[in-house]
Design a protein around this nucleic acid. Structure first.
Lengths: 144, 144
DNA sequence: GCTATCATTGCAACCAAGTTGCATTTACTA
DNA sequence: TAGTAAATGCAACTTGGTTGCAATGATAGC
C-alpha cells in the first residue's frame, strides 16, 4: 500500500512537471513527489534529510529546484519569523490564499486551508496590493 | 526647530528607558530616540548607518539593544520575507496589533496602524493562538 | 563625590540560510 | 544516437544574526 502510494506520487509529480513544458529531471520529480506525499509545509533542511540515502541532491540544486517549483506554482513558499522558508505542494488550483499557523514551541508550520488571508480596511491612497500573508502564532494541539 | 525636536526625542527616550528600572545607557537612548523620531519600521542596517558619524555603536551591541528594547516593549519587531527584522518605536500603549505593508520594489515596510491583525475563523481544536501577523505585500504609492 | 559591582559593551570568531560563477552532466530534440 | 541547452554539483561567498569573553561604564551605597 505504502509502496503503491509512493509510486503514485512519483507519477503525479512527473506529470505535473511535464505539463509545464520544461525538463522533468529526477531531482524535480523526487522533491515534488515528496512534497505531494507530505501535504504540509516542509523546510529545505527537512527535505534534504528526507531525501538522504537515495542518491543525495546537492544543497544548491535543492534550493534551485524549490525556486523553480515555486515559479511554476507547483508549490508555494511560506515565510516565518525563524527566517526559514517552507514549501508545500499545491495539490490543486485553489492555491495559497490561505492563512498559516506557526507553533512557537515545535516550530512547525501548518496551512489553515479554510482561513482566507484577507484584509478589510482600505490601503493608503496609491498603494497597490499584490499578496497577503496572514500568520497566527501560538501553540499547536501537541504542544499546548 | 529640528535641533529642539531631536533633543525632545532624546529626552523622551531617556525617560522611557529609565521607567523600566534598568540602566539608561547612551546606546539605548540614542537608538530609541532615533526610532521615536522615525515613526516607521527601520532595519538594523539602516539604524547602523543613521548612527554612523557620532561615536559608532558596535554591530553586536546594536542587535542587543534592539532585542532589549523589544523585550521591554519600547519597540516592536516586524518580520518580513527578506529575512530582515525591522523595528519601530511603540509611542504609546496601543502597540502592535496592527497589519503591515511591504513594498516589493523599494522593500520598505510601513505600519498600517488602523488595520487590525485579526482572523475570523476558528483554529483547529486544541490550538492556542498567541499572536497574529498580517502583511499586505505590493507596491507603495511611490513605486506604483 | 568616590568606589565597588554587575550590567553593558566591543571584539573576534562563529553559524545558518541562501546565492553566485563556472565547469560537468543530463534530458530532450532532431 | 548525437548535439545542445538546461540542469546539476562544487567551491567559494554573502548576509543577517549569535556567542563567549575580556574591557568598560552606570548606578547604588557609602
Amino acid at each position: 500500500m505504502i509502496a503503491d502510494m509512493s509510486i503514485d506520487f512519483q507519477e503525479r509529480a512527473d506529470n505535473l512537471i511535464r505539463q509545464t513544458g520544461e525538463r522533468a529531471t529526477s531531482g524535480r520529480i523526487r522533491v515534488l513527489a515528496m512534497l505531494l506525499a507530505e501535504q504540509r509545509p516542509v523546510s529545505h533542511q527537512e527535505i534534504e534529510e528526507r531525501l538522504r540515502g537515495k542518491s543525495r541532491l546537492n544543497r544548491v540544486t535543492l534550493y534551485r529546484i524549490l525556486d523553480w517549483l515555486n515559479d511554476k506554482c507547483l508549490v508555494h513558499r511560506i515565510v516565518s519569523d525563524d527566517r526559514v522558508w517552507r514549501f508545500r505542494a499545491n495539490n490543486d488550483l485553489r492555491t495559497h490564499r490561505h492563512a498559516h499557523f506557526k507553533c512557537t514551541r515545535c516550530t512547525r508550520v501548518m496551512c489553515l486551508d479554510d482561513m482566507k488571508a484577507e484584509y478589510d480596511r482600505p490601503l493608503p491612497a496609491g498603494y497597490r496590493p499584490l499578496e497577503v500573508e496572514l500568520t497566527v502564532k501560538g501553540l499547536c494541539a501537541e504542544c499546548v
